[in-house]
Amino acid sequence: MEENRKIISTSSLEIVPVEKLDAVRLNLLQLASNATDLAYAPYSNFRVGAAVILEDGQTFWANNQENICFPVGVCAERILLGYTHANFPDLKPEILVITAKKSDNSASATVTPCGLCRQSISEYERKFNAPIEILMNRPDGTLLRANSIQDLLPYQFEDLNK
């Protein structure tokens, strides 16, 4: 009988000061922040905005959209990636920026993608066989940077028949 073995996974996030961002990432941060202000979040009062740049340089943004029937609401990340893939299915998403704030507070709140969004991001990385850089805004003037969804979701759901 084989003895038990461990699978060990490590990941890391980098803390990046906003002032160290290049023009592309700074623009995405501003787009995501603007999208946050337009979110429809009357039930949770938690607004999320996301912005993405595709490999051809096009940028898009979206925000969370809630519904009184809670499971029906959709996260900003999934709206954004779904829209860009539906309209530009051959263009790889390269950088995704996520911002959040409470409706009653103009200050940022730290947020990372939920489990559904993490799995969705992993699907696009798998489709394009390339990582998506993920930047998550924090209220202290820094962002968390994941070089790939692997840093946030080390054990992804995959086709187990391979």
Rank of each mutant, 00 (worst) to 15 (best):
I79L: 10
C69N: 14
M136I: 03
S106K: 06
K162M: 08
R126M: 09
L13R: 09
L21E: 03
L143K: 11
D90E: 15
I15K: 13
E3G: 15
T112L: 15
P113Q: 05
S148N: 11
G141C: 13
R145Q: 15
A100F: 05
I149K: 09
L91C: 09
E66H: 13
N129W: 02
C114W: 11
D159F: 01
W61G: 14
N45R: 11
L135F: 15
N161W: 04
L21H: 04
V16K: 02
A39C: 00
N129I: 05
R47Y: 04
F157A: 02
N105W: 03
G49S: 10
A86N: 09
R25I: 05
R78S: 06
S33D: 01
W61N: 15
P93S: 10
E123G: 03
A86D: 10
L160F: 04
A76D: 00
A50Q: 06
K101M: 06
N129M: 11
L31V: 04
L54T: 12
Q150C: 08
R118C: 13
N34A: 14
L144V: 11
N105A: 07
N67E: 12
D104Y: 13
C114E: 09
L135K: 05
I53D: 08
N67V: 09
A23P: 00
F88W: 14
F60I: 14
V48N: 08
Y43V: 01
A32K: 00
P42K: 08
D37N: 06
I121S: 03
L81W: 03
F60R: 15
I132M: 05
N161E: 07
L135G: 06
E123A: 05
R25M: 04
N147M: 12
A32P: 01
Y124V: 07
R47G: 00
C75R: 04
Q119G: 05
I7M: 07
N87Y: 13
S33Q: 00
N67L: 08
Q58N: 14
L31Q: 12
D159Q: 01
N64D: 15
Y43H: 03
P71H: 02
P93N: 10
Y40L: 03
L29A: 02
L38R: 00
V48R: 09
T59W: 14
I132P: 02
K6Q: 05
S11V: 07
L135M: 14
D104P: 01
A109E: 15
L28M: 09
A35W: 02
V24K: 08
S122W: 06
K102D: 08
A51H: 12
D151L: 07
E158S: 02
A39P: 00
I149N: 12
C114G: 13
I132F: 04
N67M: 10
S148L: 12
K162G: 09
A39H: 00
Y43Q: 00
H85I: 01
K20M: 03
P139Q: 11
S103Y: 04
R138V: 08
V111C: 13
R25P: 00
C117S: 13
P89Q: 04
L38W: 00
L54G: 11
I121M: 10
R5D: 10
V97S: 06
S120Y: 05
S120H: 04
P154S: 03
L152Q: 05
P71V: 03
D151R: 03
V16T: 07
E123M: 04
P154H: 02
F88S: 11
T36A: 03
Y124P: 02
D140S: 11
M1F: 08
T99A: 11
L31R: 11
